[in-house]
């Protein structure tokens, strides 16, 4: 079952492009990574799902219901952490969280204290006195306190130190195990790698690809670093399947996907001093995707 269904979603801010014909689904129980550089349209997509903004065309459904027509009903089961967190400055943290809880039916108030304990958050401070990272923690707690079925996280880790990031990821995994579906937007690929089952890649307002995280990691991409005995021309390694090719004197770097023998044949023809073949990072694969698909 699809928890989120997005069909040809398009949003223009006046004449400026937000997103164009974005379509993808998020299935029940998965952690879906939503990846793209800043300004690619991640927040625009997410804010449309929450009907904070209205699409120019296209539609989106959550739990099978239209996000605009049945917004309030849908949002009862969504926990949302915005990319930039702002709250009423004069309130104490605990009052803000109680206010947040008051929007949802049947909230277990103890959950506030549990989550605050896990995230190491001082409930008695005023919002105004909190650092950015601590405000983010408030955001995390207010997003999770009603045990939502769908958790939408927009760049959740900025401002959190590595220890807190780990605690936060554990928390998300735990919620996911309990049955929550997660939409996780980020431009930091290693985060997505740690957490997500599938990823959607967005660039310049358009979806580039949706893929299983293992497919991306396991697809036959290899990173070659070759130290030649004699300098070679750029053209020598410029053949089908090669990308990100750089040739500087004797050293050659590229990412290859395809029949491994073609590379080996090429190398056999020349003398080689040193050879490293390694798994490319997700980041390098994405850069490759962007270049190919854009």
């Amino acid at each position: 079952m699809n928890v989120i269904e997005i069909i040809n979603l398009t949003k223009y801010y006046g004449k400026a492009r937000g997103i164009e014909k974005v379509s993808f689904n998020v299935e029940e129980g998965e952690i879906f990574g939503f990846i793209g550089p800043n300004g690619a349209g991640k927040s625009t997509t997410i804010r449309t799902l929450l009907s904070l903004i209205y699409p120019t065309s296209g539609s989106a459904k959550i739990f099978g219901k239209d996000v605009i027509k049945e917004g309030p009903e849908i949002r009862e089961h969504i926990g949302y952490l915005p990319s930039e967190v702002f709250y009423y400055d004069n309130m104490r943290v605990v009052d803000l969280l109680k206010y947040s809880a008051s929007f949802y039916p049947n909230v277990n108030k103890n959950r506030i204290f549990e989550l605050a304990e896990i995230m190491d958050l001082d409930l008695n401070k005023k919002i105004d006195d909190l650092s950015y990272g601590n405000k983010k923690k408030v955001g995390i707690v207010q997003g999770l306190l009603h045990s939502p079925k769908l958790i939408i996280l927009d760049e959740p880790t900025s401002g959190l130190d590595p220890l807190m990031q780990k605690k936060f990821f554990d928390l998300i995994r735990e919620e996911n195990k309990k049955g929550a579906t997660v939409l996780f937007s980020s431009h930091v690929l290693s985060e997505v790698q740690k957490l997500c089952t599938r990823v959607g890649i967005i660039k310049d307002g358009a979806m580039v690809k949706v893929e299983d995280i293992h497919t991306i990691k396991n697809s036959n991409y290899k990173k070659f670093n070759i130290e030649m005995k004699d300098p070679v021309s750029v053209d020598y390694f410029n053949f089908d399947g090669v990308s990100d090719l750089t040739v500087e004197g004797n050293s050659v770097h590229f990412i290859f996907s395809g029949d491994m023998n073609t590379v080996i044949e090429k190398m056999v023809e020349r003398k080689i001093n040193n050879l490293i073949v390694e798994e490319p990072t997700l980041e390098e694969i994405f850069i490759h995707y962007y270049e190919k698909e854009a």
Binding site: L52, P72, E76, E84, Y87, Y104
Partner: peptide, 17 residues
Amino acid sequence: RSKTSDFLVAKPISRNR
């Protein structure tokens, strides 16, 4: 002004309410 619309409007409450 306080940039809290993302907090309030994302709650399960209609704009009319």
